[in-house]
């Protein structure tokens, strides 16, 4: 565990906390894409299949449980909670899941570290996570008034990916045999997807104006 990895995990955790805070206290999920949240729930379910098979550390186990529980509860809130679900912007959240799910599954069957069920699911989760933010970015672009929490949420998610890249660079130089093309390429693609958002987020923060994305 290095500092970049820890900082990455913490911003990831922070993004979830920000989202839960918005849902719990403001009882609103305005500007949040249910499609993206459902994709994340699938990502974590597929990746953490090893939760009860391989024990790595207490930290690892707890974090996995937190991400699993939080992603599924967010989906539950957005679909079932009688107040929260009314704030969901269904009309603008039109991205089709299947256009990302199917290609990711095919890619995982073709490109994986080993052709076993768990490894294919692991690769699938890596590919899916890389593009799972797309419905969220599309929704933000269609939202006139992006509230602060929705903006911070996406920013922290992007920061988490960027920090993971630094973590890989660090691990590459400090650990033997640390070459992982699948997670590296998927991680870089994922971070690049945020580039445009980052630009507008940081500009609005520097100029102290409300975040607004060009249509």
């Amino acid at each position: 565990m290095n500092l970049f990895r820890l900082a990455g995990d913490m911003t990831h955790l922070l993004s979830v906390v920000v989202l839960l805070l918005k849902i719990h206290t403001i009882k609103s999920c305005a500007g949040i894409s249910l499609k993206t949240q459902e994709l994340y729930a699938i990502v974590f379910a597929a990746r953490y299949l090893d939760l009860f098979v391989h024990f790595m550390s207490l930290y690892n186990t707890i974090m996995k449980l937190v991400f699993l529980a939080s992603s599924f509860s967010i989906v539950w809130y957005m679909r079932q909670h009688k107040i929260v679900r009314r704030t969901y912007d269904k009309e603008h959240d039109t991205f089709r899941h299947q256009f990302i799910l199917l290609p990711c599954l095919v890619l995982a069957l073709l490109i994986n570290e080993k052709f076993t069920f768990r490894e294919v699911m692991w690769a699938f989760s890596i590919y899916l996570e890389a593009v799972a933010i797309l419905p969220q970015l599309v929704l933000l672009q269609r939202t006139r008034n992006i509230d602060n929490l929705a903006g911070h949420y996406v920013f922290f998610l992007g920061a988490y990916r960027a920090l993971y890249i630094l973590n890989w660079i660090y691990r590459y130089f400090t650990e033997p045999h640390f070459v992982h093309w699948i997670s590296w390429i998927a991680g870089i693609v994922q971070t690049l997807l945020y580039a445009d958002f980052f630009y507008y987020y940081i500009t609005s923060w520097k100029n102290n104006v409300k975040l607004e994305l060009p249509a």
């Binding site: 995990d9 990831h12 991400f67 691990r171 650990e175 997670s183």
Partner: peptide, 10 residues
């Protein structure tokens, strides 16, 4: 798993 494995990441 051996050292240098990225599967320990979240």
């Amino acid at each position: 798993r051996p050292r240098g494995d990225s599967h320990d990441e979240l």
